[in-house]
Design a protein around this nucleic acid. Structure first.
Lengths: 247, 247
DNA sequence: CGCGATCCATTGTCGGACAGTAGTGGAATT
DNA sequence: AATTCCACTACTGTCCGACAATGGATCGCG
């Protein structure tokens, strides 16, 4: 009578090595800013081939735990930034065929928090950046340039000014998927003025540290996106992402 | 007079290959569920060595765009699930030394939305799972078992029942970091009953499709965590993650 | 048609090789 | 002595070839 054998999950070495390196970083054994040992050194320590180490490093690198400085050769340990992770989350949302309504619902919940926290925590430098973004947005609007980039930047700056990094990490991928779609709305309505006005009100509230006002204006601002969608006869149930090729 | 030369960013081939594969998947040229060509085939198509392809595959694999089925050999294209991405986001939060307060603020904004949407959208099957989770939680509480896993599961189930995948993707990493810390609170107060009661009320509201009630109870439930922290004399400004080793 | 034995393709890992270059340290210059 | 220059080293990125293990397909058998 053979006893029930657990299917031996022969985990590939590169994944074990990757976890090992990742864990050491998480546990702080290799401090942020420090350089990773060379591939050869790692291979010798862990008794595996350099190729295996390299595959493991790709994994760790992709997680943003480690990166090359400027054009450097060595890999340095680093705390992943929202930009590192946003791409992956976006890919997930695209392949899961998430709709704009789903993104909007989350934004409606989180952006007001970002605005409120920014009113509480924004530094002068962050306020200056917001003011600068506002000027450039006004200029772009006057000259009928594309506002998409600037709008994304605005919301990113607000998230940054909130001082809440969990919020930044959550918001970044959603923003980058959602706001580009606004150009469609912008193209059909002439809603640029409304957008600019809302930005202005939000920035003012952040400047004067009026949390309630900042939240309220951001709520209206996000709600406006939905109204814009409806007025422009666009469907919020459209899935995000590029046109998929269907065979 | 040498003209200003752009520093030639000689991007390594494995990264180009990884982007190429990833882009094809995102664009739907390789459909979800389909198998990836063999390493050899990819190497020939892209005119690079198999080693290079393998390093690229590690990157794509880590993004959750591709995975092995059961113990299979081939890689199948797949939509990344929240579990794939949560680990990376968690690592980012730990290394950025995010505090429990930051996580809590986001939860306070997003969990009520999850509960509300669940009251609107939960299927019978999802409701059954919630009911089952409730029973197991009650049992664990009676027997003084650890509630952490069950609490995480509860919130995960609510997020799932919301039908909003953007919300799930945002919530998963935060939940998995935050709720384990609750065992500390639970250990000092005897707050298990309060937790169970809140879960019960939330599940009831979801069953009866009472969106307002579901939101309200979830708001109280999340607020309770903060109260618990304060009552237990724990500091919400503590950073998340395992004890870091400091040299 | 179902079932097991057999074969093949593919993955995981290893070893070695080599070009290009970032980083190092020492030599030459001011 | 400080600085600039240069040669050298070590390391990364890429390629090649090889082999064990095994999942998946094929074939033959009942």
């Amino acid at each position: 009578m053979a006893l029930k054998l657990e299917p031996i999950r022969n985990e590939p070495a590169y994944r074990i090595v990757a976890r090992e390196i990742g864990d050491r970083i998480i546990r702080g054994e290799i401090a942020v800013g420090e350089a990773l040992p060379s591939e050869m050194a790692l291979a010798e320590q862990l008794k595996v081939n350099r190729s295996t180490v390299r595959e493991a490093i790709r994994v760790v690198e992709q997680n943003g735990l480690v990166r090359r400085r400027d054009g450097g050769k060595k890999l340095y340990v680093t705390a992943p930034r929202s930009a590192d992770l946003a791409k992956g989350v976006q890919a997930a949302m695209i392949l899961q065929e998430v709709t704009f309504r789903e993104l909007w619902e989350v934004l409606q919940a989180v952006e007001p928090l970002a605005a409120e926290a920014s009113a509480r925590n924004a530094t002068q430098e962050q306020i200056d950046k917001l003011a600068d973004n506002f000027e450039r947005t006004r200029y772009a609007l006057d000259n009928r340039h594309n506002l998409t980039e600037l709008d994304i930047e605005f919301h990113h700056l607000v998230a940054e000014a909130s001082g809440n990094r969990a919020l930044q990490l959550s918001l970044a991928p959603i923003s980058q998927l959602f706001y580009p779609a606004f150009y469609k709305v912008f193209a059909r309505l002439n809603a640029g003025d409304r957008l600019l006005f809302a930005h202005q009100k939000i920035i003012e509230a952040i400047k004067t540290k009026d949390e309630r006002e900042a939240r309220a204006w951001m709520e209206r601002h996000i709600a406006d996106f939905k109204r814009g969608y409806e007025l422009a006869n666009l469907d919020m149930e459209t899935v995000v992402g590029p046109a998929r090729s269907e065979p």
